[in-house]
C-alpha cells in the first residue's frame, strides 16, 4: 500500500513537471467546450441532462488524448532502463502498476473536474437531474479508466512511445466504433437483431450511453471492470515475461 503511494507521488510529480498533462487537459477542455457550445449548440437546445451536448463527445476525445497521457507509462521505463531499478527494488510489480495507473487516472479526474462551469451553467439555466449528470460523469470517467488500462497494456510491450500511442489509439477507436450508432445499424441490417445486440454490447458505446442516461445497469460495470482488470493483469503478465 505504501509502495503504491510512493510510486503514485513520483508519477504525479512527473506528470505535472512536464507539459503533457497540462496540454492534454487544456486540449480536452477546449475541445469539449467547442463541441458543447458551438457544434451541439447547448444554449439553444437546452439539454439539461447534458447527455447529447456534453458527454456525447467525450469517448472520441479520449481515443486520442488518453493514450497521449498514458504512453510513457511503461515505454519510458523500458527506454531509459529504469525498469531495471524498479525490478530490483523490494516492491511488487503490482504496486508499480497500480501506482502508475492511479496517477494517470488522477490527471483525468482533474480534467473532468475542471469542466464544472458547464455543470454550474446547467443548474443556473434550468433544473437538471443532477443524479443523471453525476452518472454521466461516472460513465465518462470509466471510459477514461478503460482506455488508460489499455494504454498501460500496450506500453508494457514496447519502449517506443509513438508505437504505444498509435496502437492504443487504434484499439480504443475500435472499442469506440463497435456499437456506435451507425455501425450498429449497419451490423443489424446484415446480420440481424441478435447479432447486432451482442456486437454492440462488446463495444464501449453501449455502456457509456447507458450511464449517460442515468441507468445503473450491472452489466455496464461488469464490462468496464472486465476491460480494466484484464488489461492490468495483461500488463503484469507482459512485464514479468519480458524479464524472463
Amino acid at each position: 500500500m505504501k509502495d503504491i503511494f510512493t510510486i503514485y507521488k513520483r508519477e504525479m510529480a512527473s506528470y505535472f513537471n512536464q507539459l503533457t498533462a497540462y496540454i492534454s487537459i487544456f486540449i480536452f477542455l477546449i475541445f469539449v467546450m467547442i463541441m458543447t457550445f458551438a457544434v451541439a449548440q447547448f444554449m439553444r437546445v437546452g439539454d439539461a441532462s447534458l447527455q447529447y451536448t456534453f458527454f456525447y463527445w467525450h469517448p472520441l476525445v479520449y481515443v486520442l488524448l488518453v493514450p497521449i497521457v498514458g504512453m510513457r507509462m511503461w515505454s519510458d521505463e523500458h527506454r531509459s532502463n529504469t525498469i531495471e531499478l524498479l525490478g530490483t527494488f523490494p516492491i511488487s510489480t503490482w504496486s508499480v502498476i497500480l501506482g502508475k495507473y492511479l496517477a494517470a487516472a488522477t490527471v483525468w479526474l482533474v480534467a473532468l473536474a475542471l469542466t464544472f462551469p458547464i455543470w454550474i451553467t446547467t443548474n443556473y439555466l434550468g433544473d437538471p437531474d443532477n443524479f443523471v449528470i453525476f452518472s454521466g460523469y461516472l460513465g465518462s470517467f470509466l471510459v477514461c479508466l478503460s482506455f488508460l488500462a489499455i494504454t498501460s497494456l500496450v506500453s508494457s510491450f514496447t519502449k517506443d512511445q509513438v508505437v504505444t500511442l498509435v496502437i492504443s489509439s487504434f484499439v480504443c477507436f475500435l472499442l469506440f466504433l463497435i456499437g456506435f450508432d451507425q455501425v450498429a445499424r449497419w451490423v443489424q441490417t446484415i446480420f440481424g437483431d441478435e447479432a447486432s445486440e451482442i456486437f454492440t454490447s462488446t463495444g464501449i458505446w453501449d455502456h457509456f450511453r447507458s450511464l449517460n442516461v442515468g441507468n445503473f445497469r450491472l452489466q455496464d460495470f461488469v464490462w468496464f471492470a472486465t476491460v480494466i482488470l484484464v488489461s492490468l493483469l495483461g500488463t503484469n503478465f507482459i512485464l514479468n515475461s519480458k524479464r524472463a
Binding site: R10, A13, S14, N17, Q18, S80, N81, T82, I83, E84, L85, T88, F89, P90
Partner: peptide
C-alpha cells in the same frame, strides 16, 4: 532478499525528470 541489496546497474538508469 531484494531489501538486503544495493544495486548499481550497468547503464546507471535514472528518472530524467527529477
Amino acid at each position: 532478499a531484494k531489501a538486503k541489496i544495493g544495486y548499481l546497474p550497468e547503464s546507471a538508469p535514472l528518472y530524467d525528470d527529477m
